[in-house]
Design a protein around this nucleic acid. Sequence first.
DNA 1: TACCAGAGGAG
DNA 2: AAATCCTCTGGTA
Length: 770
Amino acid sequence: METLLDSSYTTVDEKPVIQLFYNRQKIKNVEGVEPYFYATSSNPEELKKEIEEQHISSILKIETIEKTIIRKKTPLVKITLQHPRNVPENRDKIRNLQNCEDIYEADIRFAQRYLIDSEILPMEGADKAGLVVASFDIETYATEGKIDTKSPILMISYADSTGMEKVISYKKSDKEFVETVKDEKEMLEAFVELVKKQKVDIIVGYNTDNFDFPYIQDRAKELKVKLDIGADGSELRLERRGIDMGARVTGRPHIDLYPVCRRLFKLPRYTLEDVYESIFGKQKLDIDTDKISVYWDGEKKEELDLLFQYSMEDAKGGLKIANEVLPLVYQLSSLIGQPPFEVSRMGTGTSVEWLLMKKAHENNVLVPNKPRDSEARERATHSFQGAYVLEPKKGIHEDIIVYDFRSLYPSIIMAHNIDSSTLNCDCCKKEDAHVAPTGAYFCKNKTGFIPEILGNILKARLETKKKLKEERSKSKPDEKKANILDARQQALKVLLNSAYGYLAFSRARWYSKDCATAVTAYGREYIKKTIKAAEKAGMKVIAGDTDSVFLTLPNGGKEKTINLGKEFAKKINAELPETMELEFEGYYVRGVFVTKKRYAMIGEDQKLTIKGLETRRRDWSNIAKTTQQKVLELVLWENNPRKAADYVREVIEKIKEGKILKKELAVYSQLTKNPSEYQSKAPHVEAVKKAMQEGKSFSSGDVFQYIITKKGEMISDKARLTEFVAEGDYDPDYYINNQVFPAVSRILGALGYSEDELKGLGKQMTLGSF
DNA sequence: TACCAGAGGAG
DNA sequence: AAATCCTCTGGTA
């Protein structure tokens, strides 16, 4: 089975030749593909003449054609050129002609444009292609803790889907997976050879765009090693992609798993170890990076072996993560119609945009231009109203049922045909159309561009889910097939859920404030109506946020509440448009509601659902988080606040004794700007600044931990990065009064305990009232 | 006490 | 280079 991995183009005899890269490094050349763009005009024939009069030799063809612009078939001029490099000059020249209004589709890269036009889907059938996926990782030497490509690479680890696993280095080991070569240069050469010999189709790593590949490239340059690992023998290329780099290996797609994981998982941090643990539920071997150089220099065989082992585990860990996430990347790739190199680095907005551009081609719709920078900035300065959040009924509640509108925003877009092309159409009278609460109205005669696409995606997803269910219910399910179906339905879900954000995205080609505001206004209307209806039915609404509603039935008890609840959902659904549905999400025994977006509930299975509370935040210490969690368990399951208070008292005692370990005290934070740019004094910034005085460097985006120590006046003065703090050096007062106390009093306070009673807890008095 | 900047979460 | 709504902290005046 053959699958398309990548596309590119070269020039032969002054003509572009599209190169299609398939698995096992097979290359197909496509000749005769010509680049083109469009020009709009109030008088296309005149514009055509005007262009012809310029006698531009690089222009092959000038024709008037028709495309749909906002539902209307509109004539425009198509200009076909000899070579992609002729596009920029001619685009500018023609834009300045008298009869030209604007230029369209001149900014779509040739090789990517070809994929849209040819309707060839990358990665289609990838699961049957037997792709060789290889993961690699490097360890480097650091002089005085500084990472600098003047220092050598010490080892390169490699693991691929054929089972080949090795670490290439120039020090010896008894470990069977270590291959020892003469020096760093030979190591790099051996790596290049290995990739070729193994016929690697997809090359993966973790943070390899911004670390491993740039480092390898620098060292290879220094040591005069040719990194010709491209399927066509081309060398590794580093591209600027916004603020980040992208390491491109032609025809042998390099996929950096870091941006993929960032997009796929919602985690507090994204180190390889964090991601590994969150997927597999167990820890990966990790060593302190400062130790790498020490172990390398040291005489101890065990330490060097540990380093080899660690490096091997990193490559193997990368491969394991790849096995989990690549199926989704492949599915997104074939849905969007773009190669995995691009797709794996795209944000949600860009993914949706490529999908729309592909559909625009299929429907002969003209692709709108990207907004200019000034326009995008202007759009971004005006924010608009979003979702509705109901003020919760604070305190403890029992027998709670929860509803969710299934895919609220996409279902609204479909139900009310929300699209730029249907907005305030002239074929419907307003009163006959879908009138949004904003006053905008949408056509009822013809389905809009985006609603139609979403409808097809939804249909495809339901079919895929059905097939998945069928497969899994077989007596001998085909696990591989099921996993692919699951990846496909997930990819469809990602696209479905990104549609609203795209409409409101300031740099979107299909940006529409009118559509975006209509969507959220409908959303607010639906949830408010549901709340009112629930109240009318005798239910008590205790919380609600965007698309979810939390209800109890006063004096109802479990059975009665669930029965009435299900009946209520039925009634609501009967009145909802076809694509919309209020789903019964679940029943909970007990729950405590603190503020908007902050609550905890416990199910019949004793499973806690905690949202927004400190337990869920990385910028709180473990000691505060675990104590809060324990209090929640005791309060929600055992219904025993007194026991909770006892527990808190024990924790406070331990803190006072100075027995708490660093890892229980550390607080995570992230710099959202460079340290010098902060205008206010804050603990996390002060901790970083102190570390910088000790030679560490920090910049925007860095994630780190700090502890509040004993030394200093203000909290900021006491804050120091964890690595500079000795065990036992912490401020017990801070951890009692500013960490554990607020976290637990949030819960106990919501149960009705008074300020004084809670303060007593902090001061560790005996709590008679508990 | 009121306010601000900043961080991080929910949906 | 997807959006808005929201709570909470520490520092300052």
